[in-house]
Amino acid sequence: MRSALRSIISRDASPVSAALSVSNLAMRYGEREALSEVSFDAAAGELVAVVGPNGAGKTTLLSILAGIQRPSAGSVSRDPREVGWVPQQPALYSKLSVAENLALFARLEHVTDPARAVERMLEQTGLRERASEQLSRLSGGNRQRVNVAIGLLSRPPVLALDEPSTALDPGQRERLWSFIRGLAAEGTCVVFSTHDVHEVQRYAARALVLADGRLLFDGTPAGFLAEAGRDIDGDFEDAFVSFLRARGER
């Protein structure tokens, strides 16, 4: 069964030099297998989308990359401190200001020059004018920008984002993706999970399709459409659903 599944995994987008290598990752919660033999490589500057239905293992995979959880088996080439972590819900102190949140995490992460790192992130996120505002007064989009900025404080070569655009309106989502694409353009390897398959089509260079903890597809969005029997301009969501159905998934 597993060998059959592995045979459908396409590797048409193998990176030249891997910024991140994941090898045979497995995660078990008692009898339940949340991840099973997941392996992939990602290059510097690559935007990799992890997509799949609820309970597919997306958050488990990203939290292992970030060092939140330890895998039952397998390995990740990077130390957790080399992976910037952006959880799904902003992990920030609402009573602190934008600058205070950034400064706190810069100190906790032992960034060499915390003040300079804060300045850099305020500049990068476009939040300089709101630096002294408490987080509780910021919109969801701006909070998510600070959330991402904290993941980038130590200039990590890999950034892991768990459903970064959830609960954002279209305008906030657009600005967030513009920011993330800018990071990738500067060489950061970005791995993000999402429920929104259109984001995969629009922003990702590569898609990893997970279902029930197994990696069903690894390749470009165009390759995925082809795998699902759709043409290159086809509806990605429709292709995704029929792809999963064809493999007996939800």
Partner: peptide, 17 residues
């Protein structure tokens, strides 16, 4: 409540870190 615990303690299970 602020969802910070995971961020603060990540890698806490790693002896190297």
């Amino acid at each position: 409540e602020e969802h910070v615990l995971g961020r603060l303690l990540r890698g806490a299970g790693s002896a190297t870190l």
